[in-house]
Simulated assay, not measured.
Amino acid sequence: MRYPNADLRCVDMLEQRGLDRGVIAQLGTCQFITRHMNVVFQGFTGSGKSYLGSALAKQACQHRYRAHYIRMPDLEETWTAAKDKPAGREKWLRKYSTFTLLVIDEWLLDPPTDDVRSMLLELLERRYDATSTVFCTQYAKKDWHQRLGGGVHADAIMDRIVHNTLWIETGDVNMREHTAAAAG
Rank of each mutant, 00 (worst) to 15 (best):
Q59M: 05
A55N: 08
G28F: 10
A82W: 06
A87Q: 11
A87R: 13
G18W: 04
L109Q: 11
Y96P: 01
A81K: 09
V11G: 03
R117A: 12
Q26T: 11
H68K: 05
R71P: 09
G22W: 06
T78Y: 05
A81H: 10
D114L: 12
L102N: 04
Y51S: 08
H36T: 15
L56R: 00
T113N: 04
R9T: 14
K49P: 09
D12I: 08
M37Y: 04
Q59T: 11
D105L: 05
R71S: 15
L14A: 07
R66M: 07
Q59C: 08
D114K: 04
L108A: 04
G88Q: 05
Q42R: 07
Y65F: 14
E15M: 06
L101G: 11
Y51W: 07
D105R: 00
A60W: 01
G28S: 07
A87F: 12
F44G: 01
S97F: 04
Y69V: 13
Y96C: 06
G88H: 05
G22V: 13
Q62G: 15
E106Y: 00
P86W: 03
K58G: 15
Q16Y: 07
I70V: 15
G88T: 06
D74N: 08
I24G: 02
P111W: 00
K91H: 09
A82Y: 04
A82F: 07
D114I: 14
C30G: 02
Q42T: 13
D74P: 05
F32V: 03
D84F: 13
T45F: 06
Q26V: 06
G22H: 14
R71A: 15
K95M: 02
I33V: 12
E106P: 01
P86G: 03
H63V: 01
D114A: 13
G43L: 08
E77M: 11
I104M: 03
I70M: 03
W92N: 01
G48I: 11
N38D: 12
M72N: 08
F32Q: 02
G28V: 09
P73W: 03
V103N: 07
Y51R: 00
R64Q: 11
R17D: 10
D115Q: 12
M13A: 02
D114F: 09
V11Q: 02
P73I: 10
A67W: 03
G22A: 15
D20N: 12
G43S: 07
S97N: 09
T45E: 02
T100R: 07
Y65A: 03
D114M: 10
L27H: 00
M72W: 02
M13Y: 07
K83H: 12
L75D: 00
T113W: 02
D74T: 14
R64S: 09
L102Y: 00
Y51E: 04
Y96K: 02
T45Y: 07
R21F: 02
C61M: 10
E90I: 15
S47C: 07
D74A: 15
Q31L: 13
E15D: 12
D105W: 02
R66S: 11
K49Q: 12
V39Q: 00
T29H: 00
G22L: 12
A67V: 05
L27N: 02
R35K: 14
